[in-house]
Computed example of a mutant assay.
Amino acid sequence: MTSFAVPLQPYHFVTPRKIIFGWGCRQHLAEELPRWGRRVFVVCGSRTLEKQGLLDELRWLVEKAGIIWQFLTTISREPLVCDVDGVTRQLQAIGVRPGDLLLAIGGGSAIDLAKAVAAMATNSQGDSVQDYLENVGRGLKLTQPPLPVAAVPTTAGTGTEATRNAVISSLDPPFKKSLRDDRVMPLVAVVDPELTVTQPPSVTATCGMDAITQLVESFISNRRKPIPQLLAPEGLRLALKWLATAYRDPDHREAREAMAHAALLSGICLANGGLGMAHGIAAALGVVAGIPHGLACAMLLPAALRTNRSAVGHELAYLGRYALDKDFPNDDAAVDALIEAVEQLRADLRLPQKLREIGVSQEMIPKIAAGSFGTSMSGNPRLVSQKEVEDILRNLY
C-alpha cells in the first residue's frame, strides 16, 4: 500500500482530558465525576432514554458516589439560541457555585447544548449566546472558563464528545453557527457503544454517514494536521466496514463498537483538522430546508469527493486503499473505488439520493448555495464558487 505522510509543521492538538471507551463503560462515570465536581446539572437528549431507565441508572451511580444530581432539560432537536439562553437562565436561577459541572447524556444536540450552557453560565458579558457565535453576533469571546462538561454519547456519529465547539442554530434570522473555544471540550468522554443499540436504524444510518463525512473531510482539509491524518483512515475503515451491519442488526456488538469508535475518532479529527464542502453545504441545507445534518452529509459526500479529487487526489487515493484494504493500479482507480463504496453504502442504508425526495425545492437552491460559505467551507482543499455549489445542488435535485 502506498505510504502517505504530512509534512511536519507547527500545530496544536486538543482532546478530552480523559476518554473512557468500551461496552458497559458507563459504570465508570461515578468514578470520574468526583474528580471534577460535586454537583452535576444534567442535559438529556431524548425522553426515550428516560423511559428506558438509563437516566435512573446513571443517577443511582452518580448519587452513590456522593454527587448531587440536578436535572435541567431534555432536548430532541438541534439546539437553538433560545434553548441555550433559556437553560442558561434556568441554571443561573438555581445558582452556580464552585464544584458544579454539566453532564450531557444523548446525541450531538444534547452535548452541544450542554457545552454552550456551560460556557454561558460563567460568561455574562453578552445578552445571549448569539453574541458569542461565529460571524452572527457581537464577536464576544469567553473571558471565564466554562463549567466542566462530561459527555456520554448515545449515538455514533457527531463525535461531539471530542470537539471544541457547540453548534447552535436560529430560525429567525436563520443560521447555524458555532460557539468555538478549546475550553468547551468535554473534560471526560464516556463512550459506551451499548448505549447506541436502541437507536432507530434511520438514526444509525445518518449518524454513521456524518462520521464518515467528518473522517474524509478532516483528512483532506486545508487545515489537516499530522495526528488526525493518522486517525482518520482507521476510523473510515471501521465505518465503511461496519455501518451497514449496525443498521441491519442493531444488537451486533462488534458493529456497534466499531461505529462508536469511528465516531469518536471523527470528532477528534474534525476538532483538530477542520472540515470542508460537504459540511458547509449541509449546514445551509439544515438552515434553509430543515434537512437533518447527517442526511445532508450523506447526500453531499460523493459530490464533495468528485469536486475535490483534482486538488487532493493522492490523499483520497490513500484513503481508498487503506479504508477498503485493497491495492489499486493507480490513484484514479483508488478514488473511484472510494466513491463507489460510499455510494453503495448509501444505497444499503436506504437513504434518499435526490434533494427533491426530502422536500428541497429548486427555488431554495440559490439561498442554500449562498449560505454554504461558513467555517466548514473555508477548510475545503480547493476554492468552490457559489455558482459551482448551485450546480452541485441542481445535479443532486
Score class of each variant (00 low, 15 high):
Pro145Arg: 15
Cys269Asn: 06
Ala30Gln: 13
Asp131Lys: 04
Leu49Gln: 13
Thr155Phe: 07
Ala337Arg: 02
Val360Arg: 06
Gly313Thr: 11
Asn272Thr: 08
Leu338Asn: 01
Gly313Glu: 11
Ile392Tyr: 11
His12Leu: 13
Leu55Glu: 10
Ser372Glu: 07
Gly95Ile: 08
Phe41Ser: 03
Gln130Leu: 08
Asn165Arg: 01
Arg306Ala: 13
Phe175Ile: 08
Met209Asp: 03
Ala116Tyr: 03
Ala289Leu: 05
Leu338Tyr: 02
Pro200Asp: 03
Gly157Leu: 07
Glu217Tyr: 11
Gly276Phe: 06
Asp85Gln: 06
Pro98Ala: 12
Met364Leu: 09
Lys326Met: 12
Arg97Val: 10
Pro79Arg: 06
Leu54Thr: 01
Ile168Lys: 03
Arg248Asp: 13
Ala370Gly: 10
Leu61Gln: 10
Ala151Gly: 05
Ile212Cys: 07
Asp181Leu: 06
Ser109Trp: 09
Ser109His: 08
Arg26Gln: 14
Gln362Asp: 12
Glu194Ala: 15
Ser202Asn: 05
Arg26Tyr: 07
Ile212Gln: 06
Val43Glu: 00
Leu349His: 01
Leu305His: 07
Gly45Leu: 07
Leu61Phe: 02
Glu31Cys: 02
Ile75Ser: 01
Cys82Ile: 02
Leu140Met: 08
Ala334Pro: 01
Gln130Thr: 05
Gly235Lys: 00
Ala333His: 11
Asp251Trp: 12
Ser109Met: 08
Leu215Phe: 00
Asp391Met: 12
Leu103Lys: 03
Gly374Thr: 10
Asn330Met: 05
Asp332Ala: 15
Gly95Leu: 08
Val14Ala: 14
Pro366Glu: 09
Leu179Arg: 04
Pro10Tyr: 10
Ile94Arg: 11
Glu340Phe: 05
His12Glu: 14
Asp131Pro: 04
Val6Phe: 05
Glu78Phe: 01
Leu8Thr: 04
Phe21Cys: 00
Trp69Gln: 04
Ala150Tyr: 12
